[in-house]
Amino acid sequence: MSETTAILAEDEPILRQQLAKQLAELWPELAIIAEADNGERALELANRLRPDCLFLDIRMPGLSGLEVAAALAWPTQVVFITAYDQYAVPAFEHEAVDYLLKPVTSARLRQTVTRLQRRLASATPAAPLHALVEQLQAALPSTTHYLRWFKVSKGEEVRLIAVEQVNLLQAEDKYITLHTQEGAFLLRKSLTALEGELEPDAFWRISRSTIVRVAAIERAQRQLSGGYLLQVAGLAKGVKVSRAYAHLFNQS
């Protein structure tokens, strides 16, 4: 039988060396054929060298450990390593894939080594990872793909305005005025294009030319016309909600 091979992927050099050292003590026959300090390199090495086992840190620059596992072209025994993922660990418990928590203790690593040796000896095929990775990515706190930052030019600079800073967005001609506690900023974009990029629960369209941040609304007053007049944080003047959008504020 040819010797068992492994690749270690961990971005922190001290932790990588420590894992290599612990593995050398517990499993002298294991050949660590390569080490990677970021996700892209790990994927490239794993696909090229096709190791029997792959130790993957979850949080790495470039690609995350989960992304590397999902993109592997060659089935291999994967052991995930994580410092702290309160959501991911329960998901691991149910799967045929092993995981290690940092700091990795020798006792725990011994279990992993025994499990890997048993699987490799019985030629247990590596667990299919796509389903697990999908499940893990769903279990991890969901990442949003909504707009987080407005980039606006102010003189020479490109200012970054967090969406939470903006209380009101008002379209005027080809610009949108962003009203924040620190003043107004101009953004060159159409309101309709922007509306789709904002989180729908956090920002409401309230008229043809206005979007308001819901948390910035201080008071809504019903008007005789059937619309509403809003008091918005940081703005002295009331903001009108046209009748077409009044349903957002109607009770029940």
Partner: peptide, 18 residues
């Protein structure tokens, strides 16, 4: 931040002997 804390502890753990 928990990642910071546990990664740091893991590093110390790794350095103790070497």
């Amino acid at each position: 931040e928990p990642h910071f804390l546990f990664n740091t502890l893991a590093t110390i753990h790794g350095l103790i002997e070497a």
